[in-house]
Design a protein around this nucleic acid. Structure first.
Length: 498
DNA sequence: GCCTGCCTTATGGAC
DNA sequence: GTCCATCCAGGCAGGC
């Protein structure tokens, strides 16, 4: 079962005491048996749900969502804020007290906003079982990958090409895109789970053949892990942490060291979960919101991230400081991606309505010029290079998926795709499959559309009765061709397999 | 041009 | 089965 429990809070203790008192009163009134009937009826309804869920009701521990605005966006100079005695924490506490009916709970709520390292055991939120198995699994897989050349990632070439060779002896007449028969992809009942509560904002597969594990981030700052192939005796294979105070904007796993998982947050934190040290180390803290992160394929010690209104910076892990910072867009940068064929090329997508390709060698302070700009007129929520790097796929609120190709990406086609997700569903982002032939993107009818690069249109849709919500974030397993993960705004994850 | 308010959507939980 | 709260988007209209 996809159980997810959080540590008992002061609020919950008080609540349980109240429940106990009420039960005593009900017993005195002799109506307990009727309540039991109602509980049974509710349990039956719960079991009819298609997804895995906890049998124990979880109290809402996330508290009210607090809007965080940087000094910069508020137009307040840092000195002025300090002088007036304001801090984010104080600001937030005041806002919590104003907006939450649970004042005492909100004020006492322990927030991972504190700077500095955070022990994994302190951030661990499942109180029913230990995270020891997760740590052992990742550590073991990391050690195995060090010993096996097979797991070594060559970031200088396509991350998929080597693995896809020899894959797929498909029946003629089937919808085969490149190396994958998309009609053969299926969603098994066991490959559906709810990892976290609320909206999933980021999703990643661990880049290793050794295991099928996904990591997700949600809007409350939780990070959830799911070992899809966990043995039954090891429980459900789901582990939940709370290392961030706000929505997780990006997750990146070091392909050369899968025991290192980076995560960024709207609240300005970048943390590195180091499984060997069992810590969520603080890599960087910014006054501005961080909207995306990406590792350089040329140097995995260089972490690129976007912050505030269009700024892209690089954090040098060795030096422990920011190496450069450029103002690349008018508004927030939603994604950063690197070209696997040429690590100097970086693609950005922005709410300013454009997606751009930049040459890192020619980025300088001030207003640098992009190699290529794809103009969507309205917000662009993703810009991803294809596995070989020959294409760039951009997804926009303007109901378009852009496809750029050519030696300088000068040929751009616009493919219609309905992208009006509204307020509650994270904007769709078209991702590449395991080769340059297809793009996977969610649709509002609880399906996954497959766009053919050759035909420049949607050619297939993955659908399943087990998919009870709209999948809006995806990741293709880097080595298991045909293994596709989709995540929803309800905290569920679906794993499609060949 | 800037600010404010309104509208849209899907989901899970409570009842 | 129905209702309601959610609320870290984004566009648009209207007012200043």
């Amino acid at each position: 079962m996809g159980r997810r429990r959080e540590k008992m809070t002061e609020y919950e203790r008080r609540r349980l005491e109240n429940i106990k008192r009420n039960e005593q009163m009900l017993a005195a009134l002799n109506i307990q048996s009727r309540l039991n009937d109602l509980t049974t009826a509710k349990r039956q309804r719960d079991q009819s749900k298609s997804y895995k869920r906890s049998p124990i009701k979880k109290p809402k521990t996330e508290g009210p969502v607090v809007l965080r605005r940087s000094l910069r966006t508020r137009g307040v100079p840092p000195d002025a804020a300090t002088a007036s005695g304001l801090s984010d924490d104080i600001d937030d506490k005041k806002q919590m007290e104003k907006t939450s009916p649970l004042k005492s709970f909100s004020a006492e709520r322990k927030s991972p906003r504190k700077q500095g390292p955070l022990q994994m055991k302190d951030a661990y939120s499942n109180d029913d079982e230990s995270d020891r198995k997760l740590i052992e699994t990742i550590s073991q897989c990391f050690e195995n990958s060090l010993m096996s050349e097979r797991d070594t990632v060559d970031l200088g070439s396509s991350k998929f090409l080597e693995k896809k060779e020899g894959y797929g002896a498909f029946e003629p007449g089937k919808r085969v895109l490149g190396s994958v028969d998309v009609e053969a992809l299926q969603l098994k009942r066991d490959n559906v789970a709810r990892l976290v509560s609320g909206r999933i904002t980021s999703l990643r597969f661990f880049p290793t053949l050794g295991m099928s594990m996904v990591v997700v981030g949600n809007k409350f700052g939780n990070v959830g892990f799911w070992n899809v192939n966990a043995e039954k005796e090891d429980g459900d294979g789901i582990y939940l942490y709370h290392p961030h105070p706000g929505p997780i904007s990006g997750i990146v796993i070091d392909p050369f060291s899968i025991s290192k998982v980076y995560s960024s947050c709207y609240d300005g934190f970048i943390r590195l979960m180091d499984v060997e040290k069992e810590v969520f180390d603080m890599v960087h803290y910014s006054e501005d919101s961080i909207y995306s992160i990406s590792l350089s394929p040329n140097d995995t010690k260089s972490l690129y991230f976007s912050e505030g209104m269009g700024v892209v910076s690089m954090w040098d892990m060795r030096a422990g400081k920011s190496s450069f910072s450029c103002d690349l867009h008018e508004k927030r940068v939603n994604t950063l991606d690197f070209n696997s064929g040429n690590g100097n090329l970086m693609a950005t997508s922005s709410t300013d309505g454009t997606a751009c390709i930049w040459d890192l060698r020619h980025l300088s302070a001030g207003k640098p010029k992009s190699l290529k700009t794809v103009d969507h007129k309205r917000s662009v929520h993703s810009a991803y290079f294809s596995p070989t790097g020959k294409f760039l796929a951009t997804t926009s609120i303007a109901d378009k998926v852009g496809l750029s190709s050519g030696s300088n990406y000068e040929d751009t086609s616009m493919i219609y795709h309905y992208n009006q997700t509204g307020r509650w569903i994270s904007p769709f982002r078209g991702i590449w499959g395991w080769d340059d032939s297809s793009i996977f993107i969610g649709n509002m009818k609880r399906g996954v559309d497959v766009i053919s690069v050759e035909e420049k249109k949607t050619v297939a849709t993955l659908e399943s009765d087990y998919m009870s919500a709209i999948p809006c974030r995806f990741d293709a397993h880097p080595y298991n061709v045909g293994m596709l993960a989709g995540a929803t705004s309800g905290g569920q994850v679906y794993i499609w397999t060949p």
